[in-house]
Amino acid sequence: MLEIKDVNVFYGAIHAIKGITLAVGDGELVSLIGANGAGKTTTLHTISGLLHATSGEILMDGKNLQKVPANSIIGMGLAHVPEGRHVFARMTVEENLRMGAYIVRDSKKINENLESVYQHFPRLKERWKQYAGTLSGGEQQMLATGRALMTNPKILLMDEPSMGLSPLLVKEIFAIIQELHKSGITILLVEQNAKMALSVADRAYVLETGTIAMEGNAAALSADDRVRKAYLGA
């Protein structure tokens, strides 16, 4: 479904992403782990068109996303849940969700999507009139994810969903990610909490200073001494 081939990204003179190649198959949950500053968020921003690669290809269902404007990529079935949530604080929960459906023209479909999101996130339904800025961090993460789901995405890019959350809420968010995966949504998950990321993923890539250092089955990587020492605190 998603292929990244020999992609390079620069910030001015800084070579942030150095010829990375990775793939996410239909229905897979693939994790991209690495230390802070390794280039994980830059990779997601490049896939979703917020940044442009200097070279290489980013293909979704065989179509080169490098030639597609960022606002059109959403319509192709790719949704991005950004690092830090970025909900509209002065809008209600439901207004935030409906903003996520701005590309959907069928009002009936919007209402169906809304009910589907509320089934995934019952807490959002309880707080549908509440201003997003008054929600807890975990609830805002649910809202940001629900907003992305309003587009019926084929693939969901998730950037650091556990950031700033308590251990209890981290478990809850990852249970939701597993539920979304089981429902058939393809997910590329960027996460600094390597233990949790590897526990839910089918496959994973390890990103170090802009390059893919390791890749493979998530369970095998969890057992690898190099990964355990560098990322799992073993």
Rank of each mutant, 00 (worst) to 15 (best):
A204S: 12
T134P: 03
A79E: 06
R228C: 02
L44N: 09
R105E: 13
L207V: 12
V200M: 07
S162A: 02
E215G: 03
A220N: 08
Y11P: 05
I73H: 12
M163K: 05
H86D: 08
A70S: 14
V87G: 00
E28G: 08
L114T: 08
A70K: 13
N113G: 11
L135I: 04
A220T: 05
G12N: 03
E179F: 09
Q66G: 15
K18L: 09
S183T: 13
K171D: 12
Q119L: 15
R85F: 06
L44C: 08
P69R: 14
I73M: 14
L29C: 11
G184D: 05
V190S: 04
N64W: 14
M150E: 04
A194Y: 03
E83K: 11
L29D: 04
Q178W: 08
E215P: 00
Y11I: 03
L180T: 02
L221E: 02
Q141H: 11
K18F: 08
G12S: 08
S222L: 07
A13F: 07
H181M: 00
M163E: 13
L156H: 10
D202M: 02
G84M: 01
E115Y: 11
H15V: 11
N111Q: 15
Y131A: 04
A230D: 03
G164M: 02
E139P: 04
I14G: 06
D202Q: 09
R127W: 01
F121T: 08
N8W: 15
H52N: 14
S183V: 10
N152C: 14
A175N: 15
S222N: 06
K171V: 06
S48E: 13
I177A: 04
E215T: 04
N64R: 14
L232P: 03
A213S: 14
E83T: 11
I212A: 05
P161R: 00
N64F: 13
Y231K: 02
A89T: 10
K154D: 07
P153A: 08
L165F: 01
Y231D: 01
G12A: 05
I155H: 07
M142G: 01
T41Y: 09
R105N: 12
A38L: 10
E172W: 07
D159N: 06
L22R: 07
S136W: 04
A219M: 10
Q140D: 10
L221A: 01
V227S: 01
H45Y: 15
F88S: 01
L135D: 01
A144N: 05
S162R: 00
M91G: 01
F10D: 04
Q66M: 14
M142V: 03
L169H: 04
S162Q: 00
I185V: 14
K67V: 13
L157I: 11
G184K: 09
S199C: 01
K109E: 12
L78M: 14
A219H: 12
L189N: 05
N71H: 15
G56R: 11
